[in-house]
Simulated scan of single mutants.
Amino acid sequence: MTVMSQRRTRAFARVLGPFLTIAAITVVVRANDMPAILSEFTGSAVWPWITGAFGLLGGLTILAFHQFWREPAAIIVSVLGWLLTAEAILLMAFPGVFADLGDQMIGAVGVWRFVYAVLGLIGLYLAYAGWRPTSAGQTDTPVESGGEMPRAA
């Protein structure tokens, strides 16, 4: 993997890892509130569209800046980008399908706990991959060049 791809993977892992871990813990802690949250979320056509729009922005950002498939953390980040993009498009285009699926799955507490435990572990792994100390020969900061950088305008 090139230094640039390692930097990008670490940067995305630093954001996605803690996010997934915190989200998974929050869902597990607030499991009893999830039916009410789902009901409020699907009660309006606005929330699925807004959530899908922001999810699409996040997913496309990952896809635009991270298409690396050479190490586990990079693969996870890229797969998350594709999944987020697909979910966001479907949420914006077919919110009723997600509402029906949510209604059907809300009672499967054991399944959801398992899924969020796995997501929490993935988040912990990405957080570790993003924040672990680099080896002596590797750095996260760009190497200073002796020459002046070309101007954009």
Rank of each mutant, 00 (worst) to 15 (best):
R8I: 01
A11C: 00
V15W: 06
L16N: 05
L16T: 00
F19Y: 08
I22R: 06
A23K: 08
T26F: 13
T26W: 09
V29S: 04
A31T: 11
A31Q: 12
P35Y: 08
S39W: 01
F41P: 00
W47N: 04
T51D: 06
L56H: 07
G58H: 05
G59T: 03
L60E: 10
T61R: 09
L63Q: 15
L63I: 15
L63Y: 14
A64T: 12
A64P: 09
A64F: 14
H66K: 10
Q67M: 13
F68Y: 11
F68W: 12
W69E: 06
W69A: 08
P72F: 03
V77I: 00
S78I: 08
V79E: 02
L80V: 08
L80Y: 01
G81C: 10
G81E: 06
I89D: 06
I89S: 03
L90M: 12
L90G: 10
L91C: 03
F94A: 11
F98A: 06
D103T: 11
A108G: 11
A108M: 14
A108F: 15
V109Y: 13
V111G: 14
F114I: 13
Y116S: 13
A117G: 12
G123N: 09
L124I: 14
L124V: 15
L126A: 04
Y128M: 04
A129H: 03
